[in-house]
Amino acid sequence: MRKLREMLDKADINQFRFWTQIFFFALFIYGGWWALNWSERLPVFACAFVQDRCGSCYLLGLQHQMTAPVSRMFSLAGLGILTGFLTFLIWFVLLNKAWCGYACPLGTLQDWITKIRSGIGVRRSQYSETGFKRLKRIKYALLILLILIPLAIGNTIFGSGLSHEFEIPFCMICPGRTVLPIFNADFSQLMIDFSTSTKMILTALGMAVTGGFFVGAFVKKRFFCLFCPMSALQYLLSRLSVLRLVKDGGKCTRCNNCVQVCDVGIRQIAENMEKGDILQDDCMLCLKCVAACPENDCLQLKFLNIPVFRSTDTGFFCRMEKKERGI
């Protein structure tokens, strides 16, 4: 048991994450080859437009369900919405936001782009602290819109129902739809649909976002995640999860290592000195902060209140030494 503890303390979390991400990427993009089908309510961007996927993103289903008239939602048919949400919740509760950091194929793709960037020696750009705070709100707006717009289809909000072409508004602009099928050699989503003006606008927007996705991911780490409505939905539910990131402020020396290594530059983790849960809405539980913290037990990842990975003095120096050998 002590051996296992020691091994976990010294774990090279980045390497572990790298391979886990590859595993999930392969699963979500090529899982269909092995006739796998996990669930249609996954809390990640396992895009439904990918032919050989093994599961799909909950947001797609959610948008579909929202197109029903409100009266129907409160009938027995509402049970479908409820079970859908509960399935999503069960998946989510298991891994919390680690779904973003370890499983999301779109996130993985961004991390690979980051690897290319740092590999060719281009330095990252960072958000200004005020700009970051302002941009954070966009994902909540998107989450509200992706529920409200489909609602306007089955219900007469604007006098008459909205066109069915707005059925999955977020998917239309999500880079997951355009980019991920490419890995199945399917380029059909990379186009602007001129059949109707609504489709044209939505697909054109989608193409623009796709362009932004690539440029953004090259310049900043996890650029798209800042706007991700899935991340917003997850954060709203994160208190329910059995996986928690906990900080003991009393042990913190405010060395700021955690902020230094954070891909999205969350300052709260260094500045919050209260004891307790410190998961933030942009956090993806990549655990780099825990690995970079040199104070024993200051940061901990707890599963059902059992520390799975914790910050340790020995682990920190062990990892830094490895880094030195790496250059």
Binding site: S118, T253, Q260, F317, M320
Partner: peptide
């Protein structure tokens, strides 16, 4: 002597 810096990418800026 107690504190130690950490960084993710080994570029001069970081």
């Amino acid at each position: 002597f107690h504190d130690a810096p950490a960084y993710d990418e080994t570029c001069l800026h970081d």
